[in-house]
Simulated assay, not measured.
Amino acid sequence: MPLGDEVPEWKALRDALRDLVTRAGGCAAAVVDASGSLWCIWPVASTTLPLAERFLERELAEHRRVALRRGGRLRVAHPAEPSEDSYLAASFGGIYVLVLWFKGSFDPDFQQARLRRELPRIEALTVALPPPDGPQAGEGAAKQRA
């Protein structure tokens, strides 16, 4: 079962990402995991998928994925010029990463404080998601998320 609007938990996560983007003055947000999977993104548009792909290539190289799975943490602030991807990211739940993109530079300290406040809500919504391939498919993932 693919995750989408028919899954209330996914819709709630998408709405939380939308609210975060709005409050932060960002342009997009996503939840990805240490395996490189995209769990949820806002806005849901083909123009935001390349942002996630570039983030995964740049920040979640194999050594960082392994480190996350082993209890490591990821915190990244990349306030770049408008011609580059400008983002803030923080890991949670052992394997997930919340990424918030901006158009141009941003105040890292101010936005990191905002992300820390929002992270518990995003984490709760993410771990509440049903497994995308049905109830039995996620037994291992549910244990890993717990």
Rank of each mutant, 00 (worst) to 15 (best):
M1K: 06
L3M: 07
L3N: 08
L3K: 06
L3I: 03
L3Q: 04
G4E: 09
G4H: 13
D5P: 12
E6Y: 10
P8M: 05
E9F: 00
K11F: 07
K11H: 10
L13V: 11
A16P: 01
L17A: 14
D19H: 00
D19S: 10
L20S: 02
V32P: 03
A34M: 10
S35Y: 07
G36K: 01
G36L: 00
L38V: 13
C40R: 02
P43Q: 09
P43H: 13
V44D: 05
A45F: 03
A45M: 03
A45I: 05
L49Q: 01
L49H: 02
P50E: 04
A52I: 13
F55P: 12
F55Q: 10
F55N: 11
L56C: 01
E57Y: 06
L60W: 00
A61M: 12
A61N: 02
H63C: 09
R64L: 12
R64E: 14
R65I: 13
R65K: 04
A67N: 13
A67P: 05
R69N: 07
R69D: 03
R69S: 05
R70Y: 07
R70I: 10
G71N: 13
G71H: 02
G71D: 13
G72H: 13
R73P: 04
R73Y: 10
R75W: 05
H78W: 00
H78C: 08
E81C: 00
E81N: 01
S86K: 03
Y87S: 05
A89V: 10
A90I: 09
A90C: 06
S91Y: 06
F92E: 01
F92I: 08
I95L: 15
L98P: 01
W101M: 00
W101Q: 06
S105G: 08
F106G: 06
D107W: 07
P108W: 09
P108S: 15
P108K: 10
D109L: 14
D109W: 04
F110C: 05
Q111A: 12
R114N: 12
R114A: 14
L115G: 09
R116V: 04
R116M: 13
E118D: 09
P120E: 02
A124V: 00
A124C: 00
T126D: 09
V127L: 09
V127S: 04
A128P: 08
Q136C: 04
Q136T: 11
G138H: 04
E139L: 06
G140Q: 09
G140I: 02
A142G: 07
K143M: 09
A146I: 01
A146R: 07
